[in-house]
């Protein structure tokens, strides 16, 4: 990430200087903070409510019930997380929410699962296999009903906004499987059976 960040900032600065546009740098900085406040605010709203409600769900045994229903795929995806680990419930709810198309609500639960897996991994600097799997599951955005893109197509006056559903689900499914496969292959060749 450090290299990517450096090259972005470097390229940006270089182009500002070449195009003699140096005066936009301060407005860009101000805009960055404004945008980050907006993004963080949305994320915070989701985190406050979902981490709050999920704590109740956890105590009520609802997460355990969800975990039980999803135990087979969870075992396969996150082999080193034991079912007794509280991360299991948050992994299960993250996956469920993503599948339901509630991506915004899924993020806080994924973060919580990440935190619990990190602690389980001995707060190691190196992310574990399960942590990588959780990330690729969230970047490949598999959903049973792609809400946002259909809303976008509707707004653009598509004659058939939902025409892409099957294609989107199929693509997401293939990408998800490939990404999980990448994690399995990568961790096998770099970290043994960790």
């Amino acid at each position: 990430m450090s290299m990517i960040w450096l090259s972005f900032v470097f390229t940006g600065m270089l182009s500002l200087i070449i195009t003699s546009n140096a005066s936009v740098i301060v407005p860009l900085m101000i805009e960055s903070v404004e945008d980050t406040v907006v993004i963080s605010f949305h994320l915070l709203v989701m985190m406050v409510f979902w981490l709050g409600f999920m704590k109740i769900a956890e105590s009520a045994g609802l997460l355990a019930a969800l975990t039980y229903m999803l135990r087979r795929p969870l075992k396969w995806l996150f082999p080193e997380v034991t079912p007794e680990n509280p991360a299991y419930g948050y992994l299960a709810s993250n996956i469920t929410f993503n599948l339901l198309g509630l991506g915004n609500a899924a993020t806080p639960l994924g973060l919580k699962a990440m935190q619990l897996m990190h602690a389980f991994n001995g707060n190691n600097e190196r992310p574990s296999k399960s942590m990588l799997t959780l990330i690729v599951l969230n970047t490949s955005s598999l959903a049973l009903y792609p809400t946002s893109i259909i809303a976008l197509r509707t707004a653009a006056h598509s004659s058939m906004p939902s025409r892409i559903i099957v294609a989107v689900i199929l693509t997401s499914a293939i990408t998800t499987i490939v990404a999980v496969g990448f994690v399995k292959i990568y961790t096998k060749s770099h970290c043994g059976d960790r």
Partner: peptide, 10 residues
Amino acid sequence: VFSVKLLLNA
């Protein structure tokens, strides 16, 4: 956000 904004601006 800052680095992406710079890059987009370029």
